[in-house]
């Protein structure tokens, strides 16, 4: 597969995530769209690691493995982020009885 196909696939998933963040008002769905964007970036990183393994594998034998370890650390950070973010959403729901993000504009005052 040419690398272009993976670039355009990740781009499509990333832009769908952006459209979701901009158009939806349910905070949980906004959070899920952020996860979608993270996964698009992960997919592209893995595709690039396999591409450079063909080109640079003889000179830098651990380069592709390092790229995949990087993706692993992105997943680790995403898991920690989800736990804290969902706790914040639950606390918000407990205080306002709504998951609408527009309720948060009361933080202005």
């Amino acid at each position: 597969m040419p690398i272009n196909y993976y670039i355009f696939l990740s781009l499509a998933v990333f832009c769908i995530g952006i459209i979701g963040v901009l158009t939806r008002r349910n905070s949980i769905i906004i959070f899920m769209c952020v996860e979608l964007m993270l996964n698009a970036a992960n997919l592209l990183l893995v595709a690039f690691s396999k591409m450079h393994h063909l080109v640079l594998g003889t000179n830098f034998p651990t380069l592709a493995s390092e790229a995949q370890v990087f993706v692993f650390f992105i997943m680790v950070v995403a898991a920690a982020e989800v736990s804290v973010g969902l706790a914040i959403i639950v606390m918000l729901y407990r205080n306002t009885h709504s998951v609408d993000v527009n309720f948060l504009n009361r933080l202005k005052n």
Partner: peptide, 10 residues
């Protein structure tokens, strides 16, 4: 971009 000739190893 010039990267379209690069192939992903599958």
């Amino acid at each position: 971009s010039s990267s379209q000739i690069q192939l992903v190893q599958m």
